[in-house]
Design a protein around this nucleic acid. Structure first.
Length: 137
DNA sequence: GCCAACGTTGGC
DNA sequence: GCCAACGTTGGC
């Protein structure tokens, strides 16, 4: 089982929207590194859902429900996407400020490479952040 | 709304 | 294959 973090602007696609939809296709990624990360995902992998621009916090946990396949919105045919479904919300959102000031999390990709929209999370980071969020990962 | 950081593109 | 220009992301 691998762990990931995906970013979305709430004004574009929020956690609540995902819960309402029951699942979504993660289309629109146009970055090779993010795309490569999605290629590495397997069904059942867990994903932190992060709100960028507004909120600036990890708000819940989702799960990969379909592996990488071509993104129909990409006319060049170079990029693909995965499907995800909601698992559970955090009791307490874990904010970027929380993550930045915590020595245990200062190596998270979220801090180090803030612009990457799909990033890996280590099992240690996963457990710890789940603890902060008030849920069992 | 601004601006820094960074990835991608395209000319050479 | 380098690198300048450009566009986009995302925190503040």
């Amino acid at each position: 089982m691998n762990y990931w973090l995906m970013k979305s602007e709430p004004s574009t696609y929020s956690w609540d929207h995902l819960v309402k939809d029951k699942k979504t296709s993660w289309n629109g990624v146009r970055n090779f590194q993010a795309s490569a990360n999605m290629k590495a995902m397997k069904v059942g992998d867990r994903v932190f859902f992060y709100h960028s621009n507004e909120g600036l916090a990890i708000v819940g946990i989702a799960e990969v429900s379909k592996t990488y396949y071509p993104d129909p919105t990409d006319k060049t045919g170079r990029f693909g996407m995965v499907d995800i479904k909601p698992v559970m919300p955090f009791k307490t959102p874990v904010t970027l400020a929380d993550i930045k000031q915590d020595p245990k999390l200062k190596d998270m990709t979220l801090v180090r490479s803030s612009r990457l929209s799909v990033q890996p999370v280590t099992p240690e980071q996963w457990k710890y952040v789940c603890g902060l969020g008030g849920v069992k990962g």
